[in-house]
């Protein structure tokens, strides 16, 4: 059941991200990118599986019920990175607005 729920969550996050990414408003498309990245993170955490097929220690085969901790470390790293990039892109967005006075993609790239 949790597998299905997670799959649905990941799917809807990806589709929401893609939908927002294709908007004309730059802020919305950035939100789309961020959601897209978070979807990738959620996806990554499911990749460890919930049955503990990949033990970290030698002789850990009998600890069948453990969840793989490696993916959690990976996701933590990915989250930290996405925090950095997210804050950078938001500040950059502010600069774009300062420089161009608009966040409409058509007008931003049309004016050259």
């Amino acid at each position: 059941m949790s597998q299905l729920f997670l799959a649905l969550t990941i799917g809807s996050l990806f589709s929401l991200g893609t939908f927002l990414l294709l908007r004309r408003d730059l802020l919305k498309s950035i939100l789309g990118v961020i959601i897209f990245g978070q979807a990738a993170n959620v996806y990554l955490i499911t990749m460890g599986g919930f049955s503990g097929t990949v033990p970290v220690l030698y002789g850990g085969e009998n600890l069948v019920s453990t969840t793989d901790p490696l993916v959690q470390a990976l996701v933590l790293t990915a989250i930290v990175i996405s925090l950095g990039t997210t804050s950078f892109i938001l500040v950059l967005l502010l600069r774009v607005y300062d420089e161009h006075g608009t966040l409409d993609i058509d007008r931003l790239w049309g004016q050259s």
């Binding site: 990118v33 897209f36 460890g48």
Partner: peptide
């Protein structure tokens, strides 16, 4: 930045898949 963020997300997907 936007392109590389999307690229990064895809790389994460690939890495997760390869790990799994």
């Amino acid at each position: 930045v936007i392109l590389n963020l999307i690229g990064g997300a895809f790389m994460l997907i690939a890495i997760g898949g390869i790990y799994a």
